[in-house]
Amino acid sequence: MIDYKKKLATLSLQTKSIFSGHPIAIAGLIGFVIFVLIALFAPWIAPQNPYDLMVLDIMDGLLPPLSKLGNGTTSWLGTDAVGRDILSAVMYGLRLSLFVAFVATTVGFLIGVFLGLLAAVKGGWVESVIMRAVDLKVSFPGILLALMMLAIFGTGVDKIIYALIIGVWASKARLTRSSALSEMQKEYIDAARISAIPNWRIMLKFLLPNSIAPVLVMVPMSLSGCIGAEATLSFLGVGVPITEPSLGLLIANGNDYLLSGKWWISLFPGVVLVSLVLCINVVADRIREHNNPFLKSMNMQ
């Protein structure tokens, strides 16, 4: 318990040293936290459930922001063609977009770290197979790969998560391997080996904690990348199904109405999407900068 508290203390200290004196990054972090909270509590704070066809009224369709709905409530951000409240749709869309990106990033990260460590420790043909697979993946743009996968498997939330995982794991595996290999050159690994410490313990207790830092630094970047990729694929109509609109699909739905002056349907999901990705990216940049010795020395100027 004390150990846990201690770790929490060092973590908060670390967070402070990363963010103090960088107002843009702090704003990004706060923004991100707010988005996550909205996504988590969407079912309780959204004015209506946009998935529930019973509450939708076609008579409320295509109303501009601040309009009164048939049931007497105000639609702050307007409604779409089927009378769905845009604010609610954005909240639910945010929920789905973040969910997909979180799951894909986490699973991709775990797979990547595991394979990277395995390649570094095992060497030989295991390493060759893993690293050639990484080369294959890296030489191919992620969005095309995802398109290809979705063309094969069809669309759906689970399918898009698989497609995104494929995009995430390879770079993590490559980085973990190179980081682990440079750790393995170090003498504390030799010290563990001559003390006959079993390989799996060396992997978990020596290699993993010491080689994971540079990979962790990449995680926020992957997260924002996944959000963007999911939005793009959904916009193109090969992502999430029409019944569960994510931010990208909401924009696509509104796209048809843009030219007829009904701007609110696309604009609000778009603004939320861009702000979300931007928030994550400024935080990601700050973390990377903090971990880069070159930039660090210069920031003291």
Partner: peptide, 25 residues
Amino acid sequence: SFFTTVGYSTPNFWQAIILIMVFAV
């Protein structure tokens, strides 16, 4: 650097929509 951060944080398709709205519409 701030502008490029905003730039690459904005998904390609959203940029396209904005470009169309501003320059074409």
